[in-house]
Nucleic acid binder design. Structure first.
Length: 543
RNA sequence: GCGCCCGUAGCUCAAUCGGAUAGAGCAUCAGCCUUCUAAGCUGAGGGUUAGUGGUUCGAAUCCACUCGGGCGUACCA
């Protein structure tokens, strides 16, 4: 709200200060309170362009702004040429009205209203349970979807999977052999098969249902079919435990059945974008600025992942999305440039695709890093983690970190410190406000907005200023795909509230000021709840 | 070897497209509950931002090199 005001003021001063439009105008919240509420470095940037003293420019800017002194109490030129703005307490307090009026919708913006986005995430093939590693992609993808919705997008959450190919054959055969073992057959279980206990569980289920009727069944028949169904249902259950629900499950196989793959291949060939060499089909990606051409069909006749991936993204373009977000782990870093280049050769606008790479989660157990592998079954499942610490902690813990950071997850620490997780700090602030609201009801006290100008104390003002920043924070997080900003913001907000709570009491204060403080507390509650809902974390009324 | 990501307090991480005195939580130490939830508040200690150079009014952030870690580098996905 504060930034909005300054942008407006600067814009209307455009005619008098034409050089302003030549730079990107940014207002920062200084780290130190004595540097004002918002600060601009415009004069310093302009000083280079105009070859003039920055302080001189700053003075010129200030004198040409039409500042309302009911809004801005003071401006100053500081340091090497910062322009610092101080807002009046009365103006800052107005935010309470806006928040309490908009309620659950406060912070939502219409900036991207009417646009459609697709966020593809998780996309693990059904060969085993989701691991903590998948959890990172799952939570991040869902939170980014929420953020996009908050700035106006209509978002489809999508899960892309492949239930064909070698890994699924191995899965079916793993179950088959375990099944035979259960029946007393001594077939040796190959080392590179899926070692997890879940394979045994599925085999047991099959034995219970079919007893020995499937001894001659092939790996790719019933075994694969049942294993896939079981695993997929586990994956969906697990995701729903942390509140994640995909709207679309896109099967790679449908691309083949629908003739999309053959059609694409033909188009590449007909337009001269591909050629044959050594029995394989190559796509001319070197024309698109890549180092080398890449194989799209192996000499065995099977396509590589590139062909279906390009075809898949083509269907997304066909479905009319304005923004397509692909979220995957760092083991895929090498694959997406090929796919995007392929789409570009077909004339698609690659700017509509945003690829996000989340770095790996290193699991630390007993002080040592654990190498995770579904094959070898030395992973920690997402389900186990949720059992241990609960959905809120899992979601918050993952959201706290920038996706580019390599995060360490110490299982023992997570269990031990689950009570100390910052998420409880936020939830506690929310519960405290709910408790106040319950208590004042008995005292016949109502929040009132007529006396907000009384909120001039330090703790009240810093809480108010924090509230003023929520909208901008949401927009920034969404546009930059940085959920962790919301966490940092909420922790600051909760801290400002806890201080307010400690020093500025509601009950026992004079009626006008008590009502104003109550209105402020209610506004804070709304923001905490809205922020937590973006993160997919609950806002409990009691703790 | 080459490409991408990263290195910040004892630990896990922040730091608003380069901003003023690098911040939180945990851990450690010292205080604060007859009044709205102490899962809280106040204070203390803890840093050459891996290292060396460079760019400029100004660098954790940008550039170069070195060291250390992760992920790739396929006619696997």
């Amino acid at each position: 709200m504060l930034k909005k005001y300054l942008y407006k003021i600067f814009e209307s001063a455009n005619k008098r200060l034409p050089y302003i439009s030549e730079i990107v105008l940014v207002f920062d919240t200084p780290k130190i309170e004595t540097h004002g509420d918002l600060s601009s470095n415009a004069a310093m940037i302009l000083s280079k362009k105009l070859k003039r003293n920055p302080k001189e420019i700053a003075a010129e800017i200030i004198s040409n702004l039409e500042l309302d002194n009911a809004v801005i109490s003071k401006t100053e030129i500081a340091g090497p040429g910062f322009i610092n703005f101080y807002f009046t307490p009365e103006f800052v307090a107005e935010i309470v009205k806006e928040i309490n009026k908009a309620g659950d919708d406060f912070g939502k913006s219409k900036k991207y209203f009417g646009k459609k986005a697709n966020v593809e995430f998780v996309s693990a093939n059904p060969t085993g349970p989701l691991t903590v590693g998948h959890g990172r992609g799952a939570v991040t993808g869902d939170t980014i979807s929420n953020l996009l919705e908050w700035v106006g997008y209509k978002v489809d959450r999508e899960y892309y999977f492949n239930n064909a190919g070698r890994q699924m054959r191995v899965l079916g055969d793993s179950v088959r052999i375990r099944y035979l073992n259960l029946l007393g057959n001594q077939v040796v279980f190959p080392e590179d098969y899926y070692q997890g206990e879940y394979i045994n569980d599925i085999a047991k289920k099959i034995k219970d249902e079919f007893s020995d009727k499937l001894v001659n069944e092939s790996a790719e028949g019933k075994f694969k079919e049942i294993a896939e169904a079981e695993i997929f249902s586990d994956i969906k259950n697990c995701l729903s435990r942390i509140n994640i629900h995909h709207k679309i499950f896109f099967n790679e196989k449908s691309l083949y059945d629908g003739g999309k793959i053959d059609g694409l291949l033909k188009r590449f060939r007909d337009s001269g974008l591909s050629y044959e060499k050594d029995g394989a089909v190559w796509l001319k990606l070197s024309q698109m600025g890549l180092d080398t051409d890449k194989v799209i069909v192996k000499n065995t006749g099977e396509p590589t992942y590139r062909l279906p991936d390009i075809a898949y993204h083509e269907t997304k373009f066909g479905r009319g999305y304005d923004l397509m977000v692909d979220l995957f782990g760092s083991d895929h870093t090498a694959t997406y440039p090929d796919v995007i280049a392929g789409l570009k050769t077909l004339g698609y606008d690659d700017k509509k695709i945003k690829v996000l790479i989340n770095q790996f989660v290193t699991i630390v157990k007993d002080g040592e890093a654990v190498k995770m592998s579904t094959r070898k079954a030395n992973y920690i499942t997402l389900d186990e983690l949720i059992d241990e610490v609960g959905s809120d902690v899992v979601r918050y813990f993952i959201n706290m970190r920038a996706i580019s950071s390599h995060m360490n997850f110490d299982i023992d620490l997570a269990k031990k410190q689950s009570d100390e997780n910052p998420v409880f700090y936020l939830q506690y602030a929310h519960a405290r406000i709910c408790s106040i609201i319950r208590t004042v009801k008995e005292e016949k006290l109502e929040p009132a907005e007529s006396n907000l100008h009384l909120l001039t104390a330090e703790e009240e003002q810093s809480l108010l200023k924090k509230l003023c920043g929520f909208e901008e924070e949401v927009l920034y997080s969404a546009e930059n795909y940085e959920p962790q900003k919301i966490c940092t913001y909420l922790e600051d907000l909760a801290s400002a509230f806890h201080k307010f709570y400690t020093f500025r009491r509601i009950l026992g204060s004079e009626k006008n000021i008590a009502e104003a403080r109550l209105a402020l507390a209610v506004a804070t509650k709304i923001i905490i709840k809205n922020g937590l809902s973006i993160l997919g974390v609950s806002a409990p009324e009691k703790m």
